[in-house]
Design a protein around this nucleic acid. Structure first.
Lengths: 143, 143
DNA sequence: TAAAAATAGTTACTTAGGTAACTATTTTCG
DNA sequence: CGAAAATAGTTACCTAAGTAACTATTTTTA
């Protein structure tokens, strides 16, 4: 183990906040925030999902997901349907959201690219691998 | 740039939350939270600091720092003094905090070690370097 | 089959960080 | 010197995620 884990941990927190800040800034013109964007992005990829499934994909607990869902419903960017099992709520993007999506994606990608310029491609890849690997070992312990 | 930056960004957020959660759990028996611990740790290292300086070291804005300081004051783990410049507030650990500090440190180090077992030393080092480097390039753009 | 357990989602309240607008000092400079 | 600008910290209000306790269904099981 490193002699000083605090530096590593602090760096990760700092980075996380920095990235959120930039993405929020990019989404500001659209009246969206990073938590909402995360949900919209997954729904675009996966189509229809229950809230439970959304929680799983985003590794977030149910209460914050309920809140984000409620905001997106109010903005009419998603629609909710109940099926056979009346406990479950199936969520999918509205046509309004599908129409706006490319603009949001462009803004977010631009912000992400800005954050990554002068950070080499191979470093990004390596970072990605290390983070995935560390998360995997942590999750392994939890179950 | 990677074809999918979202995965990388999401991984960092997830990791950040996971680490906080574990540290908070470790500090729970002492009635402390991660934000407070961060301040206590820096004060132990640096001795006396103004709130401004604390903000700088922890890369946090002034308002959250004020809140954390006020909680630590109430718990009598820090003391506040004003000097020549009456705007500045000099903060240092109380004797009570200095006495307790080793116990806190032990608990946090144990939690950190638990998070890092089965994540190789050289991977940690590499991760540390990549994060530091990325943060550096981001900060460079901001100024 | 009826009671108990599990599941999906919500509500209330918590920590943690952010910005904007404010007060109270100190420094700058016309 | 005195007004304007800068600095340190606080207050109010925002997003974001967490836990605990709750409701409403569905599944298990005795």
């Amino acid at each position: 183990m490193l002699n000083n884990t605090h530096t590593l941990f602090h760096g990760i927190h700092q980075l996380s906040r920095e990235l959120s800040k930039q993405v929020n800034e990019a989404l500001e013109p659209f009246g969206l925030y990073s938590a909402q964007w995360a949900v919209l992005y997954v729904l675009k990829e996966k189509g229809t999902l229950t809230q439970k499934e959304l929680c799983h994909y985003l590794a977030v607990e149910a209460p914050p997901m309920t809140r984000t869902i409620q905001r997106l419903l109010k903005q009419e960017y998603i629609e909710q349907q109940t099926g056979q099992d009346k406990r479950k709520k199936y969520i999918h993007l509205s046509t309004k959201a599908l129409k706006e999506f490319p603009n949001w994606e462009l803004a977010v990608n631009k912000a992400n690219q800005a954050l990554l310029t002068s950070f080499p491609d191979n470093s990004q890849e390596e970072l990605q691998n290390l983070i995935t690997e560390w998360l995997r070992t942590i999750k392994q312990k939890e179950q």
